[in-house]
Design a protein around this nucleic acid. Structure first.
Length: 836
RNA sequence: GCCGCGAUGGCGAAAUUGGUAGACGCAUCGGACUUAAAAUCCGACGAUAUUAAAACAUCAUGAGGGUUCGAGUCCCUCUCGCGGCACCA
């Protein structure tokens, strides 16, 4: 069989397609828009392996399909080029990151361009371009200049913040700063000693740096933080708007945000019968307040300073606090570790409902960064408190009845030993007790989140400079908008200092600046933004990439937003996808964007793993380079194979032999060309063509590319059996194959003498008349067991079918003793089942 | 521990969502073509029993139970694997 030479036309057509602007979006007025977005890559030094383009191929198929269905498709690509990996790569290879990044982008772009991806390259962006990060900085300044109005449920300009009267200028300033959505904090942060930078909670994996795997340490460091927690409720509740997101991703985000509704309860602290302080604890189970037998606070609880003079065993307590501070987060939260604590001798906490005192412990199983850093312990109804109470022989009071006597019991049930709560169900008791507490001013309904504010400073060179200035007279002052971008200086030495200071601090000519307020000498903020900053809004910049007046024109944004389809890896579920939703909602509050959610439909791509079953990595030497595969088999075959491997969202092992298979399939189509005539095919073939058009279209929309390709293969097998192939049918096959194999189908399209581009053809309409066949196969069952299949004209009546079966030798033997069946189950055109 | 997903031939997988289990492809085996190989074409390909061969039959979708005329699909129990969260009170 004749084989085609992909080398002879793939590159040729790619150039023609690009030169003709086939993939330009926004060129037609009347078509409906469709925005298809890929998660833009990080141009690393090692180039692409065959796993990377899988998602790009899928979105490209949808893009091509949508164009053929009459949509004005926006399908852009760009580069997420700031961040640690680029900088580490640059340090290792002793090339400046800006040069390394340019080089890597070149390689990536070359690798992508031979795959036939239909991007509108006029819109290419990169996050390291000052004309891009200017707007990243602009957004940061908007955060700085906004506060969150909880009543209105949105961000507002900080100038509209209601400031209490009678504050001194200093207090006024502090009050305002406390409400900014970008704020400076001195709280200890997660510090990676290897990467030498602070990290956000999202950058950790089991207490280790997600990049390098080092255990992170807590380090007190001044840093910029974004108040993402103000958006927690909207980020959570609006997930319900995203009906076309996979539930697994939504569940992951829900768990990450981790909303808990409960109450803060105030305990008065007494020593020697005297009130010496007040401690709030957070609980989701205020109903169990009568079962509280001790209170535990974390070693960082500020109240310890107040209590210190009254604590009789202070040296022991102090030692415990010190020990806890020496532990890493990973060790602190190790579930297997024994619970420890030290009782604060001489102090007691008064339970507001009973008026009785309970002991207070400092215990490092209480987390400092959640709730109030203090808990009311109810050993009977909490696993951890139970273990602790047993260890320290503390009383255990059951207040909720479980199905048996087993304690601890954390389920629901009726309240006992709880005075006015007795007999109530847990949920009811919660409401009653909260009311009781609120009325007496000793408690309030409270919601807490696992989500933490976003640590936004990195003590590294390769990131967007944070556009702030520190003035010895005016304090922290934002860089005026018209002075953006604050450019990252090109320097020879950019190694991280490791001291907690950004390497930019050493670049005196850059650091020294003037205060925009007083004009006096001042210093620039030397920290840079995290890797996730640029990617939190990039999808908006594609819409209007060259605008130098605003980040995106209002009308243009209104036209293209939101993203209709977003394709990328599931590993971004709790990082990029939460950050981007957060920024988008903030921009929505500012009026920059028109929709509350950025991405309407989200699909995640499964990994391609090595032939040895391991993740593709240099370390295992199992990397397959797409360039080699394209050289050997052609881009079309590679595209087909990656889509044919299995369900799109599933991981699959790479097998080059499978790629040979899809290439064989394309060779078959090539050789069919010699059978093409004007003679008509029979109805069966025509009908099969129609069925395939219908199935392939539906499968593309549902991301079932593997079955779409299988349907195409079945059609090709059918056509191969024919002596001649009607030209019309063959061309329809080429058209519906073209989203998968754009080069080969274009070549054949042209060889058949057609003008123009196959990608500009309309998706064939399905002819319902031809689609309907006149015959149907009916399954014949006796007592539920399939005994045969008969082919019948459609809509044959039940009685007629019974007559046929009685006359069919292979089937009538099951008609037991000529008896009448007890029951007949008849599904017209599908199945008949006789129950005897 | 909690939440979610999954388990189908030698392999990747299909199955109109309760109606012919294994489509399509890979690998393998046999045949054709060839001096030969590759490529290509034709054929076989879940297991078992019976048979000269086939037809037919029985069993079979991680295990065990259940619902149903009928279960890969629905329900219950369990095993294993993957992903997420995890001392979050």
């Amino acid at each position: 069989m004749e084989k085609y030479q992909h080398q002879q036309f793939e590159a040729k057509w790619e150039k023609v397609f690009q030169d003709n602007g086939l993939y330009w979006a926004g060129e037609s007025i009347n078509k409906p828009k469709y925005y298809i977005l890929d998660m833009f890559p990080y141009p690393s030094g090692s180039g692409l392996h065959v796993g990377h383009p899988k998602g790009y191929i899928a979105s490209d198929i949808v893009a091509r399909y949508r164009r053929m269905c009459g949509y004005d498709v926006l399908h852009p690509m760009g580069w997420d080029a700031f961040g640690l990996p680029a900088e580490n790569y640059a340090l290792e290879n002793k090339i400046h990151p800006s040069i390394a990044v340019e080089h890597n982008i070149d390689i990536f772009k070359k690798q992508l361009s031979i795959l036939g991806l239909s991007y509108d390259w006029r819109r290419e962006i990169k996050t390291t371009d000052p004309n891009y990060y200017r707007w990243t900085q602009w957004i940061f300044l908007q955060f700085y200049n906004s506060f969150y109005d909880r009543k209105a449920g949105r961000a507002r300009p900080i100038s509209e913040l209601a400031i209490p009267e009678g504050l001194s200028p200093k207090e006024r300033r502090a009050f305002i700063d406390e409400h900014r959505l970008a704020y400076e904090s001195n709280k200890p942060i997660n510090w990676c000693p290897t990467c030498k930078t602070g990290l956000a909670k999202e950058d950790l994996e089991e207490g280790r740096c997600e990049r390098c795997g080092s255990k992170v340490e807590l380090k007190p460091l001044r840093q910029w933080v974004l108040r993402i927690t103000e958006y927690a409720d909207r980020l959570l509740d609006d997930l319900d708007l995203l009906s076309d997101w996979e539930d697994s991703i939504k569940d992951m985000q829900r768990a990450w945000i981790g909303r808990s509704r409960g109450a803060n309860v105030a305990f008065i602290i007494k020593a020697g019968g005297k009130e010496i302080g007040n401690l709030a604890v957070f609980t989701t189970r205020p109903d169990t307040l009568f079962g509280c037998t001790y209170v535990a606070i974390c070693p960082e609880q500020p109240i310890l300073n107040e209590l210190a003079p009254y604590i009789k065993n202070w040296s022991e307590v102090e030692h415990y606090i010190y020990e806890a501070s020496q532990k890493t987060e990973l060790d602190r939260t190790d579930l297997n570790k024994d619970k420890t604590g030290v009782r604060l001798e001489g102090c007691e906490a008064i339970n507001p409902v009973t008026g009785q005192g309970v002991p207070i412990f400092v215990a490092d199983y209480v987390l400092g960064n959640y709730g109030e850093g203090a808990i009311m312990a109810v050993p009977a109804h909490d696993d951890r408190d139970y273990l602790f109470a047993q260890k320290y022989s503390l009383p255990i009071i059951q207040v909720v009845l479980g199905p048996d006597d087993h304690l601890p019991y954390t389920g629901s049930g009726k309240l006992v030993n709880s005075h006015f709560l007795n007999g109530l169900e847990v949920e009811e008791a919660k409401k009653v007790i909260i009311n009781w507490l609120v009325e007496r001013g000793v408690g309030e309904e409270t919601t807490n989140y696992r989500l933490e504010d976003w640590t936004f400073s990195r003590q590294r060179y390769w990131g967007e400079p944070i556009p702030m200035i520190h003035c010895p007279r005016c304090g922290t002052v934002p860089v005026p908008i018209d002075q953006l971008p604050v450019r990252l200086p090109m320097v020879d030495h950019y190694e991280p200092s490791g001291t907690g200071e950004s390497p930019l601090i050493t670049i005196k000519e850059w650091i020294h600046s003037t205060c925009p307020q007083c004009g006096g000498p001042a210093e620039r903020e030397a920290n840079t933004m995290p890797q996730w900053a640029g990617s939190s809004w990039y999808y908006l910049r594609y819409l209007d990439p060259h605008n130098d007046k605003c980040l995106v024109d209002h009308e243009i944004e209104r036209h293209w937003s939101p993203v209709d389809l977003y394709v990328g890896g599931a590993e971004h579920a709790t990082r990029h996808l939460i950050y981007a939703r957060f920024w988008h909602k903030f921009l929505y509050d500012l009026g920059v964007v028109n929709y509350p959610e950025p991405f309407t439909k989200l699909r995640h791509v499964g990994l391609i793993i090595g032939e040895d079953g391991r993740k593709m990595s240099k370390r295992w030497g199992n990397i397959v380079n797409p360039d080699n595969m394209v050289a050997q088999f052609g881009a079309d075959a590679l595209r087909l194979y990656e889509m044919f491997m299995g369900p799109f969202d599933q991981s699959n092992e790479w097998h080059t032999s499978g790629l040979k298979g899809t290439r064989r399939f394309l060779d078959k189509i090539w050789s069919l060309k010699s059978k093409v005539t004007s003679e008509v095919n029979n109805l069966e073939v025509d009908s099969q063509v129609q069925r395939t058009i219908s199935k392939v279209g539906a499968d593309i929309e549902h991301f079932k590319f593997n079955t779409a390709i299988s349907a195409l293969m079945i059609l090709v097998n059918k056509l191969s059996e024919q002596q001649t192939i009607n030209r019309e049918n063959y061309q329809k096959l080429l058209i519906i194959l073209s989203p998968f194999a754009p080069y080969l189908t274009q070549e054949l399209w042209s060889l058949l003498g057609n003008e123009g581009f196959i990608s500009e053809q309309s998706w064939p309409t399905v002819d319902e008349k031809i689609l309907q066949t006149e015959l149907t196969t009916l399954v014949v069952q006796f007592n539920g067991k399939t005994r045969g299949v008969i082919t019948l004209p459609i809509n044959t009546s039940q009685q007629k079918i019974i007559d046929i079966i009685k006359q069919t030798p292979k089937l009538n033997k099951y008609w037991i003793d000529q008896a009448e069946p007890k029951k007949i189950i008849f599904l017209p055109n599908k199945l008949i089942n006789f129950v005897f």
